[in-house]
Amino acid sequence: MTTATTTATPTSGRTEAQEIHFKSDRNAKIRMYLGLAALVIWGLAPFYWMVVTAFRDVGYTFDTTPWPTHVTLDNFTTAFSTDRGNHFGAALVHSVIIGVLTTAVALLVGVFASYALARLDFPGKYAVLGVILGASMFPGVALVSPLFQMFSNFGWLTGANYQALIIPNISFALPLTIYTLTAFLSEMPWELEESARIDGCTPGQAFRKIMLPLAAPGLFTTAILAFISSWNEFLLAAQFSTKSTQTVTVAIANFTGAQPHQEPYTAVMAAGTIVTVPLIIMVLIFQRAIVSGLTAGGVKG
């Protein structure tokens, strides 16, 4: 994709060999930055297009000017309006409730298991790891029919039964939580806990004053990952949510416009921007921790 550019102008005072080395170094550098530019464009261009369209007047939906034109906030008003049976605002609230509760339960349950896996030797440790790994590979679609039957027997598929969405989401968030937390916890300087004990802290104090603050970034990153997995879930939400628990992903997928069979692109892009931007801000702030959290399970094992 890159073309070698010869921008290096020969300067007197260098030998020919130095010159060649200098040139190839420089070309390599240029190629590297071109590659990096390609990477950034890859990641950002479609997202940028979504945001530009979200702010573009609906009459110019298919305008291909690469920068913002016909800027308007109407699409955001349309996204939130309930005239056409879309309940995007309510869906945002539902998704937040489901996401927060899923994260809280997954973290609460997962932190104990992660501590045990990171710090303790116990019989059946590998079996436990195997079950957790298996759970993360589990196809969500295999849960749909049994849960559908169970939940409809419980009467959970009508009204505001958030548990019908939270429970399956936990099953996806929990394995993820445990990997990430286990990796974080096993890298913590646990010898500090002992030092604190030697210095006269009680076990409780050592945990509260020393270890908890150290673990906070790991816990926070894990919480973000768990929240994102719940926020982004679609397959089960599309089956189990009702009007009063509909999540944002379902709301966006079913967004209806003024005319039937005509996709209201600009309003959908506005809704997509609203759903995505908070996540992206979080990701930008915590990118370093998120990357290490994401890859910790994969590489450090």
């Binding site: 950034v40 990641g43 679609f234 992903t249 997509g272 992206i280």
Partner: peptide, 22 residues
């Protein structure tokens, strides 16, 4: 660069699908 390549990962698949539909 790290932020740029985390963006596609963070976007919900449902939104990704609508974005590419557009």
């Amino acid at each position: 660069v790290r932020a740029a390549i985390l963006v596609p990962w963070a976007i919900p698949t449902a939104v990704t699908a609508k974005l590419w539909l557009f």
